[in-house]
């Protein structure tokens, strides 16, 4: 393709090609501190392309392609090209990842131990991970946590943090020196702005950690906390994994080991201050 960039996020290498310069320029800027894939060979390819030749120029709209695709996915306008690239990378991970058990969860590390936070879209796992990063935790990722079937360790995937709607202003005020991508308004998920993970997150992005606590946060309720037993954690995390079934017994063994070894809690929170207090208290008590 005319424009391309190769980069590595955590243990996974990507090559992103595009018919347009702008999304690649944005990726090169925001991922400038990330390494290239090992030996220059990407694990996954993403292609941003025009469905018809003239769509490169007239009301340009970006189709997302790659090694793994969703048929009939709707294109995005070129102003959302960065979002398309991120969606393309997420798609490769969700559909193609076989090396690790992939959990839809954010992950942060303190003292070498990992906290996993899994929840439905809007539960606040990206925002909480970003806020914990601002408090000195090492960010492993806001979207995917990768569990190694052999060791049970968590590997990070610290892509750009995807902030949505109110979280954008919150993180702008929390991290005024942070590096932010362009504001993309009225995307399918509302307003989106990406935040570059801090230097600590990028420098240690290939360093795994032993999982020590699993949280299932829910936003919009009075502060509350309850234990989640092994069976419930197992069911919730099978639902949060895109490749549990595909990995066969390796996925089963990895997930049963995780929920038996790592305590899990569900937390409700009405605002981020309450959430951070709950997280810090639970971490002190259990991890």
């Amino acid at each position: 393709m005319r424009h391309s960039v190769s980069l590595k996020i955590g243990p996974v290498g990507f090559r992103i090609g595009s018919d347009w310069r702008v999304p690649i320029a944005a990726l090169k800027d925001l991922y400038r501190d990330y390494p290239a894939p090992d030996d220059g060979i990407a694990d996954f390819n993403v292609r941003l392309f025009a469905a018809r030749f003239w769509r490169r120029f007239i009301r340009p709209s970006v189709m997302i392609g790659g090694d793994y695709i969703i048929p009939d996915a709707a294109p995005l306008p070129l102003e959302m090209g960065l979002l398309a690239a991120e969606m393309g990378m997420n798609l490769q991970m969700a559909l193609g990842q076989r090396r690790y058990l992939l959990l839809h969860a954010s992950a942060v590390v303190r003292d070498g131990k990992a906290l996993l936070m899994s929840g439905v879209s809007g539960a606040g796992k990206s925002t909480l991970a970003a806020l914990l990063m601002a408090r000195g935790w090492r960010l492993m990722g806001d979207e995917f946590a990768l569990i190694d079937p052999m060791s049970g360790l968590v590997y990070g995937f610290p892509r750009l943090i995807s902030l949505k709607n109110a979280a954008i202003g919150l993180m702008r005020s929390t991290l005024p020196q942070g590096r932010f991508g362009p504001l993309m308004k009225a995307t399918p998920k509302g307003n989106i702005r990406h935040l570059v993970p801090d230097a600590q997150a990028i420098a240690a992005m290939e360093t795994p950690a032993r999982p020590a606590l699993i949280l299932f946060p829910t936003f919009g309720h009075a502060p509350a906390e309850r234990a989640v037993d092994e069976a419930e954690a197992f069911v919730r995390l099978t639902q949060a994994s895109t490749n549990f079934v595909g990995l066969g017994q390796a996925g089963f063994d990895t997930l049963t080991r995780l929920v038996r070894e790592v305590p899990a809690r569900a937390i409700d929170y009405p605002d981020t201050e309450s959430a951070l207090r709950l997280v810090e208290d639970l971490w002190s008590a259990t991890a």
Partner: peptide, 22 residues
């Protein structure tokens, strides 16, 4: 069948079908 106790529930992985049962 791979069988793992998860609290009061048992998770079964049926190898021939690759299906999990709780």
């Amino acid at each position: 069948i791979k069988s793992v106790r998860l609290g009061g529930i048992t998770a079964l992985f049926h190898r021939p079908s690759a299906r999990t049962h709780l």
